[in-house]
């Protein structure tokens, strides 16, 4: 399972970085999204994949009979999904506004702030 997820993560990172290096603003934002998905899955995988139950003790139990899944990576991922949702929403509005003001979605044309 780890191997499959490792390949998926690699694919997401590769695709994300490829899209970020394109000149189109929409591809840029999709690339960013893929990258954050990759990072989330990475946390999930690195936190340990386990087929245990939920980490809740039944009544009267003092120890887990089987080692449960670690809940913390899931909490981390949930937080980072929320953050990346908000940031993506902001980025979309920013890009739309830029498109309306500058009249292009080509990153190469956004050069006026460059320091030559």
């Amino acid at each position: 399972m780890e191997v499959v997820l490792a390949i998926v993560i690699g694919f997401l990172y590769g695709g994300g970085l490829y899209l970020m290096m394109r000149r189109n603003l929409i591809q840029l934002i999709i690339g960013l999204g893929l990258l954050s998905h990759g990072a989330n899955l990475l946390i999930f995988t690195a936190g340990g994949l386990r087929k245990g139950g939920a980490p809740i003790l039944a009544d009267g139990e003092k120890v887990f009979s089987t080692i449960p899944a670690d809940p913390l990576p899931q909490a981390l991922i949930l937080t980072s999904i929320v953050i990346s949702f908000a940031v993506t929403a902001f980025a979309l509005v920013l890009f739309l506004r830029t498109y309306q003001t500058v009249g292009t979605d080509d990153v190469d044309e956004l050069k006026e702030t460059e320091t030559e």
Binding site: M20, L35, A39, L42, G47, G48, A91, T113
Partner: peptide, 30 residues
């Protein structure tokens, strides 16, 4: 105009850095 153009670079690179940071956190936790 200049602000928007600057913002796009700023936003993109900082999000890239956040993704790296997050991935680092994941591996460290593992």
């Amino acid at each position: 105009r200049a602000q928007l153009a600057g913002s796009i670079k700023y936003v993109t690179l900082n999000l890239l850095s956040s993704a790296l940071f997050l991935a680092g956190i994941g591996i460290l936790y593992g």
